[in-house]
Amino acid sequence: MTDKHVETYTQDFRSYCIGGLLALILTSLAFGLVVFEVLPNFERLIAISVLAVAQIIVHFRYFLHISWHSHRDDLQLVLFTSLILFLMVGGTIWILFNLHEQMM
């Protein structure tokens, strides 16, 4: 490795280490909240959802190296896919739960 590569190696290595550490902490927090029954029920579900979203962002940032510096529209593609997923999943859950209530 040349000197220039040593520098980028340190950067890249650090990225995976930070990502791995953050992911481990977030995972353990989420499981800890449920196992030790911290917080009331509804708040706990909100908390683990937020932890999941945080962990997904960590994975995209540190493992998949998606950032504002991307050359192509990688980030925009992720955000657009997230929008589509949100509409499909949110819409399906809304309609089916509403239908379920009407049928009770």
């Binding site: 499909m88 999943v89 399906t92 859950i93 089916l96 739960f97 379920h100």
Partner: peptide, 28 residues
Amino acid sequence: IFGFWVFLMADLVLFAILFATYASMSVQ
């Protein structure tokens, strides 16, 4: 790699539909 990235995004859509199905089925 961009082409493969587009495939991965499409694959996420498949999983999202299964998640939506599971979300209602697991309760109802």
